[in-house]
Design a binder for these strands. Structure first.
Lengths: 343, 343
DNA sequence: TGAAAAACGTAGAACGATACACGTAGAACA
DNA sequence: TGTTCTACGTGTATCGTTCTACGTTTTTCA
């Protein structure tokens, strides 16, 4: 509580002082602040001049008590996946010319922590919330949406009414992967999927994988392994796959990071990528491009996802109530990790 | 402003309702909330029961008006470097049994954006601020510290009085790198340093590099290149280094991510790592361990840095005013990217 | 037993911004 | 000239907490 500066208010300029300086009422200043109706240009100019002169900044807590805080909450599953940086770029672009600021929290991909972070964002009066890769149930999401405008990224629920969703078409993404691998000559294609709380992306991608395999007449080779996104576990799961009785000749991984780890393990086991085993990731993060990885991956346009989600949440804050579901088509980026033919 | 739920208050339970339900005064509930002096066990139990029953959660904005918001602000330079995830782990561990929540913002390594993010955290009444890799001047930092408890990570200023610093010893880290490379038989050791706004880490590391080179009698080979942390620029700078007149036989990179990119470019140029060129990174992020990278790096114990910074900022919130400067010794982790001898 | 001190509870005034209800001046119209 | 309407300003109750100052009860100790 003790503070380096002086008194408790810390030398902060209040709306009252601005009003006094400009020779107008407090309410007039508030109107200028909010671009509200009923302010003449002359008054607006006078007030803005005083604000600049005094270095006034409205206090979010106080605004939150009666109006908005002009803060958006963004919840990420983790800080390790650079894909979220792409989303963040989109969010920031969308926020460029607005009053809004974004604050981030980490859910660590667990429903319990996610709930905690979201609740604390609601406690902090954030005006809207963007939830990436949520593991919550439809019920919980509806509860949140009843309290604050909500948009999810990476959560499929086309029948959701209370909140908007922004997604890449995960089923199609998985389908593209299988088709690409089949075309490259791979047959025993395994999927290394995510273990943990069930989520809609999970089932979408697994569904796409299954459909792709069946479509190619490889229904008998369907093989889905699961691992949490933790180094040790991924290594273990990968060894199990690659050293098991019928070794797959290609692995479709949940995420680029996992794919890189699979490449690492395969290399250590003396297997050649892509000749002995083809590897595909998801998200097309910057690591895919490195020569030592050269990882085939699915691009889901993170920047666009972030941009759209932000647009939608601001629209909701401004009163929209009809639901909107935005879907981007995925795009496969082929690299050396699956180019068996030339290899 | 429009909202899915009912009225403006959104069905939120207030402290008043809790007080009523428990049959005590509002102030008594507040005391329980803040673990303040002057509350009997009986009363505390009664109040807690009511809080649970009603699902009460204090509103941060309202608390901020008079007291604390129990929110810490954490400012990261970017979301792409997984090193910050380690720091975050430490922060979360430190916060485990406290009431505090952390909210993150991104500075994109530019002083202007950083100032914006920090100001908006102050507007939002955060109780304390942790600044990672700050590019601000001592003046600005003092200004911030005058308003809120401040701790920096990755900013060397041993004479700072108004805020605490938490650091790894960057000069020693660079020194360790040079010594290691020299011991492995490298001589023309270049440093690929960061371009952008000057920072104290920058000069510390470059100083360590210079000292190491001079110490090894290689003062004549000192060669510092600069590049911003952007893919294209790093590639360009690397090509310049590796295709220039006197090609270095080892490159000490600013960050693991850059080092991985350097490995990529070197590979594309047909150079073998570590035989033709040794590569060292910084931060010892998880990517270093992958077989395809096997990158020698400096571990600066991100988790510990995060833990200490959080401890310090909370101490400051609780009234400490004497400055504290915490330094962790760096540790070199040798991997294949510099093992010329066996290679 | 009585005085002093400690322990606990309460009322009510802040905190800074918002937004409603109201007041006023001037324009438009007949 | 009077009436109605519009445009714009203003005063002030209000949001949900904290916290000071004070009052009451209980405990301690000689």
């Amino acid at each position: 509580m003790a503070q380096a500066g002086e008194g408790r208010r810390n030398g902060r300029v209040t709306i009252r002082e601005v009003a006094e300086d400009a020779g107008v009422s407090v309410a007039a200043v508030s109107k200028v602040l909010r671009d509200a109706y009923g302010v003449s240009d002359a008054l607006r100019a006078k007030v803005r001049a005083s604000m600049d002169k005094l270095g006034y900044r409205p206090l979010a807590s106080a605004r939150g008590m009666r109006g908005q805080t002009y803060t958006l909450g963004l919840v990420l599953p983790d800080l390790r996946n650079p894909f979220f940086a792409d989303i963040m770029t989109g969010v920031n672009n969308a926020l460029e010319r607005t009053q809004y600021q974004v604050m981030m929290g980490i859910s660590s991909s667990t429903a319990k922590l996610e709930t905690g972070v979201v609740d604390s964002m609601i406690d902090r009066q954030m005006d809207g919330i963007i939830l990436i890769g949520s593991t919550e149930t439809r019920e919980s999401l509806n509860t949140i949406a009843a309290k604050k405008p909500l948009v999810t990224i990476g959560h499929h629920d086309p029948s959701a009414e209370a909140f908007d969703t922004v997604n890449n078409n995960d089923q199609q993404g998985a389908l593209l992967v299988v088709r690409h691998l089949v075309a490259a000559g791979y047959r025993d294609i395994a999927m290394l999927s995510l273990q943990g709380e069930p989520s809609s992306i999970l089932s979408e991608r697994e569904m796409g994988y299954r459909r792709g395999m069946i479509e190619a007449g490889l229904g008998g080779a369907i093989n889905i392994a699961h691992s949490p996104q933790i180094m040790r576990d991924v290594q273990f799961a990968t060894r199990r796959l690659l050293q098991g009785p019928k070794r797959p000749d290609a692995i479709f991984c949940w995420t680029d990071f996992i794919a890189l780890e699979v490449i690492s393990v395969a290399t250590e086991l003396g297997l050649r990528v892509p000749q002995d085993v083809g590897i595909v990731g998801y998200d097309n993060t910057m690591y895919c491009d490195f020569a030592q990885n050269s990882l085939t991956s699915i691009d889901q346009s993170g920047e666009l996802l972030g941009l759209q989600a932000t647009r939608l949440v601001i629209e909701r804050i401004n009163g929209r109530t009809e639901v909107e579901h935005f879907v981007v088509p995925p795009r496969l980026v082929a690299r050396r990790s699956t180019s068996r033919k030339e290899g």
